[in-house]
């Protein structure tokens, strides 16, 4: 399962990276989105992959940490998702503004010599 996840993250990040380097703003934002998905998944599995392990909840006695999924990456990834979502939304606004002001969706604000 580790291999599958690793390849999935790699493919996501790789496609994102390629798209970020493209000249159109829409491609850039799609690329950033894909990269942030990859990174979120990456953070999530940094607590190692667990199968059938319950989440850490309050209960009687002291829980044995070896039988529970690591809760910290889950908290981290939640924060990262929220922040990533907000900044991407902000980027979208700027992108639309750039399209309106410069009249082109090229990242440099002008068409290159193609």
């Amino acid at each position: 399962m580790e291999t599958v996840i690793a390849i999935a993250i790699g493919v996501l990040f790789g496609s994102g990276l390629w798209l970020v380097l493209r000249p159109r703003t829409f491609q850039v934002i799609t690329g950033l989105l894909l990269m942030s998905y990859a990174v979120n998944l990456f953070i999530f599995i940094m607590g190692r992959l667990w199968v059938n392990a319950p989440p850490l909840t309050l209960g009687e006695g002291v829980p044995d940490p070896n039988t529970f999924a690591d809760p910290l990456p889950q908290a981290l990834v939640l924060t990262a998702i929220v922040i990533g979502f907000a900044t991407t939304a902000l980027f979208l606004v700027v992108m639309i503004g750039a399209r309106g002001l410069t009249g082109t969706d090229h990242v440099d604000g002008e068409e290159g010599d193609e």
Partner: peptide, 29 residues
């Protein structure tokens, strides 16, 4: 137009840098 052009690139670079920040933090953890 100048600010928005500079801003677009500034935001892209910093969003990408933030992703690296997260990868680094995850690896350290």
């Amino acid at each position: 137009a100048t600010r928005i052009r500079a801003g677009l690139q500034y935001i892209t670079i910093n969003l990408a840098a933030s992703l690296f920040f997260l990868i680094g933090v995850a690896l350290i953890y």
